[in-house]
């Protein structure tokens, strides 16, 4: 049985996570920072599903479902905050996001 090795699945998850981390660090637009967080969550999900498939257990896929629920909750709250912030400041620059509690 010459299937895809498990390490290649884990490496794909690692690459996606690293791309998301780089995007999180290098962008100043708050919307694209949220997009990078989605990419990082997706990379973690790839690693979970690869591990679950290696041992033929459903636990990896279940962890991915929980990641999906957490991502949906995070995105809805974060986008509501983003729209409110844009109405308040007129920009999406992350550097101006100080003094929000005033």
């Amino acid at each position: 049985m010459n299937a895809v090795p498990m390490s290649h699945g884990l490496i794909l998850g690692g690459i996606l996570f690293a791309i998301g981390l780089a995007g999180l660090l290098m962008r100043r637009n708050l919307l694209l920072i949220l997009v990078s967080i989605e990419v990082m969550l997706n990379g973690a999900g790839v690693a979970f599903v690869a591990a679950g498939s290696r041992w033929a257990q459903p636990d990896g896929q279940i962890m991915f479902l929980f990641i999906l629920a957490a991502a949906a909750a995070e995105v809805s709250v974060a986008l509501a905050l983003l729209v409110r912030y844009y109405r308040m400041r007129g920009t999406l620059d992350a550097d101006t996001a100080r003094g929000l509690g005033e």
Partner: peptide, 18 residues
């Protein structure tokens, strides 16, 4: 990290565990 990704875990197993 040895082994291959050849096992299929279908929706039924996932639903029963979930």
């Amino acid at each position: 990290t040895t082994g291959g990704l050849s096992a299929t875990v279908g929706p039924k197993e996932v639903a029963l565990a979930l």
